[in-house]
C-alpha cells in the first residue's frame, strides 16, 4: 500500500514536472537555436571530422543567428538531408534551414522561405585540361555523373541532354573518383556545390567549372509556413550581410579557389 502511494506521488510529480517543462519550453528558445544545414557538402555545409562546421551556408546561418540575437555558442547545427527538410521545419525541429535549399512552388506549399541569399546555376565540373564542353549541346556525346534521383540528374535526362550517358551514383565523391580516372567526363549539379568540391585541398588544380548556366536556383532559408515575423527578420539580416561585405567575404572564402565566378548577391524577393 505504501509503495502505491509513493508511486502515485512520483507520477504526480512527473506530471507537474513535465507541465512546467513544457511551460518553460518557449522560454528556453531564446538562448538556444537549432539550425538545419547539410553535413556533407564541402564549401556549402560540412561537418568536419573534428566536429567543426564549415561552408557558405554555415556562414550565412551564423550571421543570421547573430542578427537574431543569438550567441555563436548557442547555435546547434542539425543535419538536414534534402528529403527531410520540409518535415524538420514543419515539426519544429529547427528554427530555420540553410541547406542549398532552392525556392520553388512545390516546396512553398509546405514551408515559407526567406531570401534568396544565393543565385546558383546548374553547371558542370570537368578535368582542368578538358575544354570540349562549351554548350549544353556538347553534352549529348558525353558521360555525365550525378547523384541518384537528384534534380540535376533529372534535368539532364529530361531537358539538357537526353542522349547523354548519365551515370547516377550514391554521392558526389564517387563521381569525383570517376571524373579523376576518366570513367566520366563531367559531374553536374549546382555550381556552388561543384566549386566547394573543387576547392578542397586534395582536389586543388584537378578540376574546373565549365561555366554553363543551365538553370537558375535561388537558395532560400526555409522557415515555418506563414511565419512572416521571422521571415522579415531574416531578410533584414541577409540584406545587412550583403551591405557590410560579409557576404562577399564568405563567398570568396568558401568557393574562391575553384575559379568560381559568383553572381552578385540576389535581391530579397520572398516577402509576405
Amino acid at each position: 500500500m505504501k509503495f502505491r502511494r509513493t508511486a502515485a506521488l512520483a507520477a504526480a510529480a512527473t506530471i507537474t514536472l513535465s507541465l512546467t517543462a513544457t511551460a518553460c519550453g518557449s522560454g528556453s528558445d531564446s538562448d538556444k537555436i537549432r539550425i538545419g544545414i547539410k553535413f556533407d557538402q564541402p564549401g556549402v555545409g560540412l561537418k568536419t571530422p573534428d566536429g567543426k562546421y564549415t561552408g557558405f551556408d554555415v556562414d550565412v546561418a551564423r550571421y543570421v543567428a547573430k542578427e537574431l540575437g543569438y550567441d555563436e555558442k548557442d547555435i546547434e547545427f542539425k543535419q538536414a538531408p534534402s528529403a527531410e527538410r520540409e518535415n524538420m521545419i514543419s515539426r519544429g525541429d529547427v528554427k530555420f534551414v540553410v541547406a542549398s535549399y532552392s525556392i520553388n512552388d512545390e516546396r512553398k506549399k509546405k514551408v515559407s522561405f526567406a531570401g534568396p541569399y544565393l543565385l546558383a546555376h546548374q553547371d558542370l565540373l570537368v578535368r582542368s585540361d578538358d575544354n570540349s564542353i562549351k554548350d549544353a549541346k556538347d553534352l549529348n556525346s558525353k558521360k555525365l555523373c550525378s547523384v541518384t534521383g537528384s534534380t540535376s540528374a533529372q534535368n539532364v535526362k529530361n531537358d539538357f541532354a537526353p542522349k547523354a550517358d548519365l551515370q547516377e551514383f550514391g554521392g558526389y565523391s564517387e563521381c569525383l573518383t570517376g571524373l579523376e580516372n576518366k570513367a566520366v567526363d563531367a559531374l553536374t549539379t549546382d555550381d556552388d556545390i561543384l566549386a566547394g568540391y573543387a576547392a578542397q585541398k586534395e582536389h586543388h588544380g584537378k578540376f574546373k567549372l565549365a561555366g554553363l548556366k543551365l538553370s537558375d536556383e535561388n537558395y532560400g532559408i526555409g522557415i515555418k509556413k506563414g511565419d512572416t515575423e521571422l521571415q522579415a527578420k531574416i531578410n533584414k539580416a541577409l540584406e545587412k550581410m550583403v551591405a557590410d561585405g560579409s557576404w562577399e567575404k564568405a563567398v570568396k572564402a568558401n568557393f574562391g579557389p575553384a575559379n568560381y565566378k559568383n553572381e552578385p548577391a540576389p535581391k530579397v524577393t520572398e516577402k509576405s
Binding site: 528529403a83 512545390e106 541518384t148 534521383g149 537528384s150 533529372q154 547516377e168 551514383f169 564517387e174
Partner: peptide, 24 residues
C-alpha cells in the same frame, strides 16, 4: 545497386522523394 547507377526500384524512389516532397 542504386549506388552504382542501376535504375532499380530504390533509385526511382530517390527520384520521387526529390520531386514529391509533399507525399514522401
Amino acid at each position: 545497386a542504386a549506388a552504382i547507377s542501376v535504375a532499380e526500384a530504390s533509385a526511382l524512389m530517390k527520384t520521387m522523394m526529390e520531386n514529391e516532397t509533399d507525399s514522401i
